[in-house]
Simulated assay, not measured.
Amino acid sequence: MADKDERGRAGEDRAAAHLHARGWRILDRNWRCPIGEIDIVAEQGRDLIVVEVKTRRSEAYGHPFAAVDERKRRRLWKLARAWCLAHPDLAHARVLRLDLIGIIGDDPAVAALEHLEDLR
């Protein structure tokens, strides 16, 4: 993998494929607004899920989930609400939740993938 951005995109592609294989519908990817970016927005039944993807070559600097501290969680919830306001037709009467996907390995396409559902 050439650079961090390319690795991140490959990790997000892998995460989206993982969710799709589980029967989830991907509604949006890399959605941006003035306060930041959401990696993936998906739906599973009536749930609307904002998915943060963290891709790492190794755990030398900690597990990918450790990068999502309380401050980052608050920001992701704000982004989730902003997405809902921008997409009222898709967000109406939904249960909103936040998931994390961590990918660890040299090649994101085949690296270990962990999915943490319903982060609170």
Rank of each mutant, 00 (worst) to 15 (best):
M1Q: 06
M1V: 10
M1P: 04
A2C: 06
K4I: 13
K4C: 04
E6P: 00
E6H: 13
G8T: 07
R9I: 11
G11W: 12
E12P: 09
D13A: 14
R14V: 08
A17E: 11
G23D: 10
W24E: 13
W24I: 00
I26Y: 08
D28M: 07
R29A: 13
R32W: 10
C33P: 01
P34C: 14
P34L: 14
P34R: 13
I35K: 14
G36M: 08
I38E: 00
D39F: 11
D39I: 07
I40Y: 09
I40T: 07
V41C: 09
V41D: 04
A42H: 03
E43I: 13
E43D: 08
Q44A: 14
Q44N: 14
G45E: 03
R46W: 00
D47Y: 06
D47T: 02
I49P: 01
V50M: 07
V50G: 02
V50F: 08
V53C: 10
K54E: 11
K54D: 04
T55E: 10
R56V: 02
S58I: 14
E59A: 07
A60R: 15
A60P: 04
G62C: 03
H63P: 05
P64G: 11
F65I: 03
F65H: 12
A66C: 02
A67F: 09
V68W: 01
V68A: 03
V68R: 01
E70M: 03
E70D: 14
R71D: 10
R71C: 05
R71Y: 06
K72D: 03
R73M: 08
R73T: 10
R74E: 09
R74F: 01
R74T: 10
R74C: 03
R75M: 05
L76R: 00
W77M: 03
L79P: 02
A82H: 07
W83S: 01
C84D: 01
C84F: 02
H87I: 03
P88L: 04
P88S: 04
P88I: 05
D89W: 11
D89E: 15
A91E: 05
H92L: 07
H92Y: 05
A93M: 14
A93K: 14
A93C: 09
A93R: 15
A93L: 12
V95K: 09
L96S: 02
R97D: 05
L98V: 06
D99I: 06
I101R: 02
I101C: 02
I103S: 04
I104T: 15
G105V: 10
D106P: 04
D106T: 13
D107T: 13
D107V: 12
D107L: 11
A109G: 11
V110P: 00
A112M: 12
E114R: 13
H115D: 02
H115E: 03
L116C: 00
L116V: 02
E117Q: 15
L119F: 01
L119V: 15
R120Y: 07
R120H: 13
R120E: 11
